[in-house]
Design a binder for these strands. Sequence first.
DNA 1: AAATCGGGGCG
DNA 2: CGCCCAGATTT
Length: 295
Amino acid sequence: MSSPFSKSLLRWFDTEKRDLPWKETRDPYKIWISEIILQQTRVAQGLPYYLQFITRFPDVIALANAPQDEVLKLWEGLGYYSRARNLHHTAQLIRDEYNGKFPDTYEEVLALKGIGAYTAAAIMSFAYGKAYPVLDGNVKRVVARYLGIHEAADLPATQKTIMAWLNGEIPKSKADDFNQALLDLGATVCLPQNPLCNVCPVALDCVAQKEELQGLLPVKSKVVKKKDRFFHYFLIIHPAGQILIEQRNSKDIWQGLYQFPMVETNTDKSLKKTEVQAFFEETGFSVGTDGAKID
DNA sequence: AAATCGGGGCG
DNA sequence: CGCCCAGATTT
């Protein structure tokens, strides 16, 4: 028996699913390649790479036997190049330790380099039909909105909550379609900005839709905004040859340490004449005839 | 829990 | 320019 959510989702998927080449195979090797390429990479960007990759390396042995340089060359432009190195390394491990046959248990797949919880679940469901829910950025967004989760979606505790709910929703017989449907829904309907709730199959029971929270969910854990800091140091030399330093009293990582006298600004532009004058007035130093050049 | 890893598309 | 993308790994 399937829930209203799963039922509506799968019915929508029947007619609205994206037509993508890695959906046409159950070959764990090809599904593995597609999942690695699509890690943090848009489908439109990864698609041509996938086609080139499986053309040049049609199976795990071909990949394992290729020189690493060639694998990296095919990866050129995709970024996150450790993915390509892990791919090559893992292909050789499968060749040597698994007799060329891709492993088919979750634990074994998860243990492979470059494969985390998401990719392991994707391979288990798409290649072997096993009921392991996938949890990626799309799924987090869809579920956080559907359930109205106000905790940050990328926190481990929240992911556990979402995963528990997914485990109760995923149908054993159509686990692969369920996972694909969630990914497709997140990518084409439940968009990060301006989701298309009017065509969403589960909008009626969606908490975010009911309470108009689509723009607020999912909540992200706040990123500490990095501020640029610019330090302008003065080299002040006494006629007798001594050089002036001061001790930092500001409460930061350098508290108590010594430095040349300094003015901090939030731009990297050189100090204006007025700022330099202000510095000398505050400190009580004056500029001698052969002293600092002010411009 | 947060930083790091990249390149690209888009408003 | 900031955000986001079929995340994984290290600190």
